[in-house]
Design a protein around this nucleic acid. Structure first.
Lengths: 199, 199
DNA sequence: GCTCCGATCTACCACCCGGTACATTTGCCT
DNA sequence: AGGCAAATGTACCGGGTGGTAGATCGGAGC
């Protein structure tokens, strides 16, 4: 990639950053392209040389999110080394960390899904289901080896996801809890939830 | 209340119902007053005789939601009869039922909060915090009587709320689970989560 | 059957905002 | 330095949508 292309890519990132901040604060529909421009000290056509239209900014934000939010988490889920209880603990830790680290985009993904086209929504839903199924399978392993005790691994999987993803609504880095205290607490609660009898 | 006023009230409810359906499907900003009118086979000025403006429809929806979503749940939380584990189980059951029963409005409350004014948001946040604190207190009681085992009741409270509220994203009445199976499962998971050692 | 009043509709306005044509500037290459 | 292309700004358009004024319809009471 040439220097020029690097610069172009960097400008795209700046736009995406400004947009994600505004989408998080005001919502997609209520932020105008002029708002994004103003945040960068730039005018509308600047934005349009880097993105086809307003919708495409949101779409890129979702793509970026899936890439650097889920990549690591899925890696942890796919790593079959260690006992199920250790794997679950590692998973919850990374999942919580990622959710906090990228709180804005996490919130946007939940709140602005309606503004995506049907194809993109279907794509996201599919990835989400795969993710949930992977976690369910991990829980199932723990059940079959006798360390976890739940009657329905899929529900437990969805319960854990809900527990983790809800953090974006209440956790503040300025609050009484550090991220590591939070991850420690939530991974313990997750192990409780699946009825883990060993550590 | 006179017959006339009853009819007026009924028409307001019809508008709110149509609006909530559309807000759920398309989002607040993307649904027009004409959309709402069309859904009712009626024109724009009809809506405006019952609501001051578009925003006020959303506000009434939130008020209604707090009234008939939280009223019963808070009642259960306030009811101090029985052992903590029974109370927690009752709470989760009712909370899940209400979330499913009023899935549309539950989703709207999470996704459209940005469209409320600052005062209303502050009001909602305060009610939410009170709610979370009440649940935390229940968990704390269980901890102090030795049936629950969590290090931070507030986090456990928020974890349970997340677990329950997430259902609106994945539960479908057409799916494999009945509501009662769901409530049974989730209340068990909640008891696990708080490390309940008795039943 | 007539009148009056309230409920609802027709028709319209005005503004906001996504998007674009074209002018202008900037900076790179020779 | 000069010229050229790419990047960015100025100025504008046009559609969509919240909101409203005044016409019209319909029913209750006499």
């Amino acid at each position: 990639m040439s220097v020029k292309e690097h610069i172009k890519e960097y400008k795209r990132e700046l736009i995406l950053d400004a947009a994600s901040k505004l989408f998080y604060e005001k919502g997609f529909q209520k932020t105008t392209i002029d708002d994004i421009g103003a945040a960068l000290g730039v005018t509308k056509p600047f934005i349009y040389t880097y993105f086809e239209n307003k919708y495409s900014i949101l779409e890129h934000l979702f793509d970026q999110a899936f890439h650097d939010l889920y990549a690591d988490v899925i890696k942890v889920l796919n790593n079959k080394e260690g006992k199920p209880q250790d794997r679950l603990q590692r998973f919850v830790t990374v999942y919580v960390e990622k959710n906090i680290e990228r709180q804005k985009i996490t919130a946007i993904m939940l709140e602005e899904e309606k503004n995506l086209n049907a194809k993109k929504v279907a794509d996201i839903r599919r990835k989400q289901r795969e993710f949930d199924a992977k976690l369910a399978r991990l829980i199932e392993e723990g059940v079959s080896t006798g360390v976890f005790h739940v009657s329905d691994p899929m529900i437990a999987s969805l319960a854990i996801s809900g527990m983790v993803r809800w953090t974006h609504r209440w956790y503040s880095p300025q609050g009484r809890l550090s991220v590591s205290e939070l991850t420690k607490n939530l991974s313990t609660l997750a192990l409780n939830l699946v009825g883990c009898t060993q550590n």
